[in-house]
Write a protein that binds this DNA or RNA. Structure first.
Lengths: 345, 345
DNA sequence: ATGAAAGCGCTAACAC
DNA sequence: GTGTTAGCGCTTTCAT
């Protein structure tokens, strides 16, 4: 006995069925013209297109996703969009996502590992096609979650013990060498350094090591009193306090290298409040060249990271991975640039 | 004749079927414990939970969405995340989304109406449960798309001719009054103004009108030479050029009110390059209190908008709408604050 | 070239 | 309290 399907007339959005009925074809045919697959008779195609137009039909991507196992969306996990280095990265990511018809799902973690894992899980449940991940360093538990999730992923400026993942970075080691030698060439010898948490295995740690090595390479003794590790190093206040601490130990300082621009700005304020001048007494170099850096007074000398490109390149890599294309380089190294402004003499 | 379903053993992620088999129950029962509906025998529940645990099962939200017509994601349409006022708003939106188990899909439009409409459509196809929309002003074509999409929506700082939509704003009119009278109280009479496109029906236009009215109310003649409308007014360069234009017409200026902080910073640089001082010669007030405003030299006097709150309040309203709860206020007005710093004397 | 029908993974109405 | 089953809107074999 044949089953009769009663076609509902609810107030739902128009579906492929409606189009099929309107065009007097089967839903399969509608699907074919929708996806431009197989050969469809020109006449039929025209009918379908007209029906689509008439009904203002738009396919339901959720339904499609369930079938195809692809959602055309990628997740992007970052510490905090209101930290000025991320918006540019995200914008780069969104722009190329857009080119390939992807949308992005934004996730702020505040560097909380639990949140990172939870987001990874949710993104998996929502079947994103891939994820871009940024954090301080890649925790073991996070790595495990990523691996078992089977999602394509690419890391941005996020280092872990192992490097099983594709990633995009800048050469932090060389950047630090360049800054320190730039300072040394100015005649600076007592070069202070303000960094983030010492234990993390991240860009900041790499710079610190490089700072130390470059000092030694140039015959300048490393002085612990000149170095301070902030717990977070996100806000200028952290830099302010850090520099005050350093200055309370010694005022014999020629230069200061900071892990980021916010820290540099705070530190410069501390230097001023201690009656010293930038750059006359102390040269200061930041990192990132975030917004603000060129508006600060004095305008900040800093390392400019290609933030937008980091986002766009990472996304291109990710989309290749999603499409099972070969991604040549495991670690994509982008160029940085030392931007000289007024905080160094 | 009974149809025998052969259970596949592909490498797909584990599904509700796998759990059902493992726990020796029907998929309906698994669904019940998953969603905590109906009454399930404690024993059975335990079995199911164990199976879920054992298989590390996570429900496929896409499948669920297809059935429930809810995706637990909301779209957020903004001009450009790399413009410093948006990250905070987005963060506010994400934080409350998160509380209610929503994720956000971020869309940058660069104020391009076509892009806005396209995003609205895609968000519809992807069945987001609602959208937060920010733009310069609400175009008719956009309004139409929103209306016909049937998606719950709330606007942030986006005014249109009609106000059919829920929105959150600050009292731009009163803010402009406050700034202008603050300046007048300092003895300033020749008060310049740099704004965005004159034709748009937006916050900026409201401030401009209010600026003009307040001047007149206080018996100060409005002088066209003191006003400049930027095409975009996004970057400090725009402010730099705008101020140069004004200064080329007259140098008899006591104060300057700018549509945003970036413009103010650029304008201040132009003032300096014209041999004048801020605030000694010209008082300058910005708008938004974006990052950088307090780092600029001189530190900027400006109107602080509660950006984070705008995002979070809008999202709360949106989620209420999604849940068909009554949303008392159509237009939610948030408080602003005049922050006095060093760019005014 | 086109249609019928299975099925993606889930929820919910209905039956027992 | 639990199972069976229809169906969400689409893609995709398999027939014809």
């Amino acid at each position: 006995m044949k089953k009769i399907t009663v076609i509902g007339v609810g107030n739902m959005a128009t579906s492929i069925k409606d189009v099929a009925r309107e065009a007097n074809v089967s839903i399969a045919t509608v699907s074919r013209v929708l996806n431009n697959v197989d050969v469809v008779n020109e006449e039929t195609k025209k009918k379908v297109l007209e029906a689509i137009e008439k009904l203002d039909y738009r396919p339901n991507i959720i339904a499609r996703s369930l079938k195809t196992q692809k959602t055309k969306t990628i997740g992007i996990i970052i510490p905090d969009i209101s930290n000025p280095i991320y918006p540019e990265i995200v914008r780069g990511a969104e722009d190329v996502s857009n080119i390939y018809q992807y949308n992005i799902m934004l996730c702020n973690t505040d560097l909380d590992t639990e949140k990172e894992i939870e987001y990874l899980r949710v993104l998996g449940e929502k079947m994103v096609d891939g994820v871009i991940y940024m954090s301080n360093s890649l925790e073991k538990s996070v790595m495990k979650t990523i691996s078992s999730s089977n999602m394509p992923i690419v890391l941005i400026e996020t280092n872990g013990r192992e490097t099983d993942f594709h990633s995009v970075v800048i050469d932090n080691k060389q950047a630090a060498v360049e800054v320190v030698e730039y300072l040394i060439n100015k005649g600076d010898k007592r070069i202070a350094y303000i960094s983030t948490d010492k234990k993390a295995i991240n860009a900041s740690a790499i710079r610190y090591k490089s700072y130390k090595a470059t000092l030694e390479k140039n015959g300048i003794p490393y002085d612990e009193d000149l170095v301070f590790f902030c717990k977070y190093a996100l806000k200028s206040e952290d830099g302010y306090e850090a520099m005050n601490t350093i200055l309370s130990k010694t005022k014999d300082i020629d230069a200061l290298f900071c892990v980021n621009d916010e820290i540099a700005m705070g530190a410069i304020n501390a230097i001023r409040d201690n009656g010293l001048r930038v750059p006359e007494d102390i040269d200061v170099v930041g990192f990132n060249d975030t917004h603000g850096a060129e508006f600060f007074y004095p305008r900040l000398t800093t390392i400019a990271q290609p933030l937008y490109d980091m986002g766009s390149v990472a996304t291109r890599m990710l989309i290749k991975k999603i499409n099972n294309e070969e991604v040549e380089t495991k670690v994509f190294v982008l160029p940085y640039e030392l931007v000289e402004r007024d905080s160094t003499k």
